[in-house]
Amino acid sequence: MAAGKPVVMVTLVSSDGQSFQLLEEAALLSAMVRDTIQIGQGRGPAGIPIRNITGQTLSMVVVYCNKHYTAAAAADGDDAADEEKKVANKKQLREWDEQFINLEQDKLYDILVAANNLGIDGLVDLCCWRFADMMKGKSASEIRVKLGIRDDFTSEQRAQIEKDSPWVWSRTT
């Protein structure tokens, strides 16, 4: 954080009434918060109401925003020429991300939806990566089991798919 800059806090209020105070700059990772502040709202004591996102999920989102804001602020202060350090910091942040998002599906889903509604691109990306990770290297039936997807094709539709794209069934390249 640059010295001399006034510290501005912003309050996010979850759908179940829990309040979370964080640095405005951290909250600005969210496009939704950015838009709200831009039109001159959200700085008051009432804070910014975040609809459809519970306190449990919002608390995780706030942790993510704080971490990424801090990392970005630290990177700004670093020597721009020190590539090695930059790469190391980036790797460290990625490791933190992966550990942070190592969650059960239901929590992961809630965070993905929240990040999408709040417009936090990095967090959307991270959640999508995690879901993809659950699917990687698995057969269709394994994916269905893992994600609880119901095979609702009729036999006619299944025959059509096999006819259209026999190549997708093969795992060898």
Binding site: M135, A140, I143, R144, I149, R150, D151, D152, F153, Q157, R158, I161, S165, W167, V168, W169
Partner: peptide
């Protein structure tokens, strides 16, 4: 592409 067989 293989995910096209998961469901409709």
């Amino acid at each position: 592409a293989r995910t096209c067989v998961l469901s409709r």
